[in-house]
Design a protein around this nucleic acid. Sequence first.
DNA 1: TCGGTATGTTCTCTTTTAGTTCACCTTTTG
DNA 2: CAAAAGGTGAACTAAAAGAGAACATACCGA
Lengths: 228, 228
Amino acid sequence: MLTAKQHQLLVFIQERLAENGVSPSFDEMKDALGLKSKSGVHRLVNALEERGFIRRMANRARALEVIKMPEKPATTTASNVVAGNFGASPKAATPAPQEDHSIEIPLHGRIAAGTPIEALENRDSFVSVPHGMLGRGNCYALEVSGDSMIELGILDGDTVVIESTEVARDGEVVVALVDREEATLKTLRRNGRFIELVPANRDYKTQVLEADRVKVQGRLVGLLRTYH
Amino acid sequence: MLTAKQHQLLVFIQERLAENGVSPSFDEMKDALGLKSKSGVHRLVNALEERGFIRRMANRARALEVIKMPEKPATTTASNVVAGNFGASPKAATPAPQEDHSIEIPLHGRIAAGTPIEALENRDSFVSVPHGMLGRGNCYALEVSGDSMIELGILDGDTVVIESTEVARDGEVVVALVDREEATLKTLRRNGRFIELVPANRDYKTQVLEADRVKVQGRLVGLLRTYH
DNA sequence: TCGGTATGTTCTCTTTTAGTTCACCTTTTG
DNA sequence: CAAAAGGTGAACTAAAAGAGAACATACCGA
């Protein structure tokens, strides 16, 4: 997924953020990578953003944020679990009491509505949603990335509320896992032994796949958007 | 995500809140940062608000609230997590306030995004919205009727969260009252002594009105949608 | 209700720091 | 070999920051 340079830069950014909470400037990154010009850094940062590893605010100084780290094989079990538990803190143990009017659900990460996945991730963040928005089953939230569902009013940056389910009716918007690796948010259509994943954007094409390559993970039940 | 100054101020605010539960005044922040003028503090506070770290109420004294601290997610490896925690210093002991996860706001009725109003103030119905979605001032909700804002992803039946205000910047989506009788949800554009109310739908026309015929009643800050 | 104190908000200026773009060249890789 | 990823430098634009002053608002007590 990442080239050596991209990885090196990503690690550097994440270290700096962990150290003092301040993201490095382009000049500092330039020096850290031993470069002599910032423009190369600019390209690397764009590449990391495109691939969904970092997020940034356009035209803002030091406004980088690491939103995921590349796969780290091995280590996963012991050390990670321990680290995860510490990070999760008590609040993960008591996820969502609250009252009647709204409920806390976990935010599981981003889903690129247009291309690949990344619907997993830990980050113990929660979103509170009006109770009337929830479905019957377990619900969780995802942040939408990309514009493939724009014609249904689902925009880049929106938060969608998903009800966990493996069944969905024709025409519903679902989180679909393709070939066990690529999750997308699309409208589901059945067509004989094929399943069509239909985007809501003329610039994207419908994917037609054999039914056994597609697994429904959830159903869209709500949407939240914040304007700034 | 943050510059050094922004981070410094955020830490200071959160310490003061943890200490005695009262947010510091602009003058106190000015002194804490070693500045000679409050205006710089004002800008920093705005920057923190824009980046979603704090919330505030307009024109209210000491009304700051820290809603998140700079995250250090993406737990790369065990060692990193440990290092990160030490680096985080005392503040890691008091991780994050964030008490009220959602707030109830009144649902004031429907707003026809296309034509007239219907300011039926049902004092009965309320909607609960995520705490992070609210603006600074008083907020209320309206149900959208019509499709004039469809190209901005605001659909018929959506619930919009409106912050009461009489001022709005160019390009913001506002609730505008025309001739004291017709309220619509539109994008606001200023053009000399005229105000343009721009729909987001090719089938509707922009209204160009003399400024004194238009009164801004609120500003769009959030959107909720439920799928059935 | 009036006035005063404490605070928050804007504005204008100035300096410093940081991000963006472009044209052109080199290296790595499939 | 061609495409993609990197590297360089320079010009340009924009954001962050500091200062100081005028102004606006909230709140409290007489």
